[in-house]
Amino acid sequence: MPVRRGHVAPQNTFLDTIIRKFEGQSRKFIIANARVENCAVIYCNDGFCELCGYSRAEVMQRPCTCDFLHGPRTQRRAAAQIAQALLGAEERKVEIAFYRKDGSCFLCLVDVVPVKNEDGAVIMFILNFEVVMEKDMVGSPAHDTNHRGPPTSWLAPGRAKTFRLKLPALLALTARESSVRSGGAGGAGAPGAVVVDVDLTPAAPSSESLALDEVTAMDNHVAGLGPAEERRALVGPGSPPRSAPGQLPSPRAHSLNPDASGSSCSLARTRSRESCASVRRASSADDIEAMRAGVLPPPPRHASTGAMHPLRSGLLNSTSDSDLVRYRTISKIPQITLNFVDLKGDPFLASPTSDREIIAPKIKERTHNVTEKVTQVLSLGADVLPEYKLQAPRIHRWTILHYSPFKAVWDWLILLLVIYTAVFTPYSAAFLLKETEEGPPATECGYACQPLAVVDLIVDIMFIVDILINFRTTYVNANEEVVSHPGRIAVHYFKGWFLIDMVAAIPFDLLI
């Protein structure tokens, strides 16, 4: 008679799926529990143990900040960024110097990925580790590398530091407007667009060049630039800015003055950032001319202004700041037409079709709590990747769950009947059967004279019903998954307890 339990259901295979997918890609990662103190490590794979030199037993239950890997060259700011990422709910990448158990130093890129439950609360953290440099290539500990984003994938490793954006290309926007319009339909740009040429040739750093990471940081200074100062900065030398009595002219307006920039070969870094931020506020060169004239017309309804409409929906549905990093990277690809469009465009503009998908598509409701890094690593669709929660398995109709209350009560009843059979069957065979043979035949009273025979008949009927119930009862397979398919249940029961239950259900007393 089957006594099969499996009270692990309803099970959740999400954690096993993450481990299996990460292991298949030869990654070095740990999984931490966000619900406990210090976000203790609950799993670390073999790749991480080989990377740091510690065994799994030495890593388990330690804080996922990996303070046991810190050393003299470990930056405090990087460690603080990892700790801050564990307090938030967004994906974050941090470069930090770690030390192995043998004392060797290596520069590592740590990717902190939160995993949320159905309520939107962070319950786990996945920390992925990628070695960037070994100890002989690690720089000085005073050099802070965590304020910069990861290198873009479309640049060669040897040319990542030679990417320079020439400031004269930004200063000569109005001069290039006529050349853009003359391109017409034969050019790649839309009317009114501004073409910015980027020099990728390796050259020595000069005062006129600005690194790509500095251009990325310009967006942080746009908020500090007032509207009046932006307007004066875009007017140009024809209309000098008016300053109040006793007030000095704005240095932001002076930063885009061609006369002032041409007199000296070098520009201050602050002026460069502010000038680029001011130019980015204009949607095209037409807006710059309109600002000089004193009238700013409404933005025209053409394809170039609607190019950012799908980007707005993608940004609203993005799951991490990696989408913004990807957008900034692609927006700086050289030799393309940049349409400086305000994100607050007309909502009635139709979304044009684009061959290049900048932001990841909208994630469906079932995966809105899973970050983009987890979705990318697992390579699963929205119909396959579940949320991290207890999910009731989908069972067929008329199927009994093996952990249901009805099955528990039924098993206790069958257990009592088995005990009765084990006690009274030998007793009936030894004593009652002998008395029946010696006594007179009682054929007239039937079952009324033999109450134990009636009980034995009921017990046999219950055993037959138990066999039928076992054909529709779920079970737990070797992978700790609840199986509810009727065919698989029948095959599993035939290979197991079916023969024993059938022999126990045969009414031998009635056959004798």
Rank of each mutant, 00 (worst) to 15 (best):
V195F: 03
I82G: 01
K28P: 13
T375C: 11
A282W: 13
Y99E: 01
F48K: 01
R301D: 11
R312W: 10
L165E: 13
M60Y: 14
Q84M: 14
S331Y: 03
P310V: 11
A89P: 08
S318Q: 14
L267W: 11
V8K: 10
E365C: 12
V115A: 05
L173T: 15
D321P: 10
S153I: 04
R164D: 13
A32R: 01
E372Y: 04
H254V: 05
L212Y: 06
V325P: 12
R76C: 15
I336R: 14
W154G: 05
L316N: 11
L349R: 12
I330Q: 14
L315M: 08
A156V: 14
G183Q: 14
P10A: 10
A285I: 11
S304D: 09
C64G: 14
G381K: 05
K21H: 11
R62E: 08
R280T: 13
R326P: 11
I42S: 01
V196F: 01
A260P: 05
E208A: 10
L267M: 07
S261L: 07
C44R: 01
P310E: 04
A217Q: 14
S178R: 15
F68A: 01
V370K: 10
D136W: 14
I42C: 02
Q247D: 15
Q61G: 14
L248H: 06
E365N: 15
S322R: 09
V295D: 12
L380T: 04
G88F: 03
W154Q: 07
V196Y: 04
D346P: 14
P245Q: 05
G186H: 14
R328M: 05
C64T: 06
T17W: 13
I358P: 12
S153G: 09
T337D: 01
D67M: 09
Q81V: 13
P205W: 04
G139N: 07
S263I: 04
V196I: 06
T319D: 14
G88V: 12
P10F: 15
S284I: 12
Q25R: 11
D286E: 14
T270Q: 07
A9T: 08
R27A: 14
N128H: 09
R280L: 10
N45W: 01
L155K: 09
C52N: 01
S318H: 08
S318C: 12
S283V: 11
R312Y: 11
H309A: 12
S318P: 07
F125S: 05
A85Q: 01
A97G: 05
E130F: 06
S313D: 14
A204Y: 01
S153V: 04
L165W: 11
R159D: 11
P251N: 04
A223E: 09
G24I: 06
A193T: 05
P298Q: 08
K364C: 04
C265N: 13
S239Y: 07
R159M: 14
C49F: 01
D144A: 12
N38D: 06
P361W: 01
E208N: 09
E274A: 11
I123N: 15
V138I: 07
F163H: 13
F22D: 05
V8S: 10
Q84L: 06
D136V: 06
A282F: 08
P141V: 14
E274K: 04
P151S: 09
I359V: 07
M137T: 15
A142Q: 15
D16E: 09
V36T: 13
A223D: 09
R301W: 11
D16N: 14
G226S: 06
A188C: 06
P297Q: 08
L267R: 06
C52W: 15
I30N: 01
L155S: 06
L127A: 01
D346K: 07
T375Y: 08
T375Q: 04
L343D: 05
N146P: 06
R35V: 13
T13V: 14
I363L: 07
V138W: 05
F29H: 01
V377L: 14
S182W: 05
A203W: 03
C44G: 01
P249R: 08
P10L: 07
R281F: 10
L311A: 12
F22G: 07
I126F: 07
T353G: 12
R328F: 03
P310N: 07
V180N: 09
K101E: 01
V59S: 01
V222S: 13
H143V: 11
E230Y: 15
H309C: 12
T13I: 06
G24R: 07
M137Q: 15
V198K: 03
G183R: 08
G262E: 07
A193F: 05
S272C: 07
S239E: 10
E177D: 08
Y99Q: 01
S255K: 15
E130D: 08
R271L: 09
S243I: 01
G183Y: 11
L315E: 15
P347H: 15
V195T: 15
A350T: 07
N317D: 15
G246T: 14
E230L: 05
A175F: 01
A34Y: 03
R301K: 08
P386H: 03
M137R: 13
R366L: 07
C64S: 09
R76K: 15
L349A: 09
M124Y: 10
S278L: 11
D46A: 10
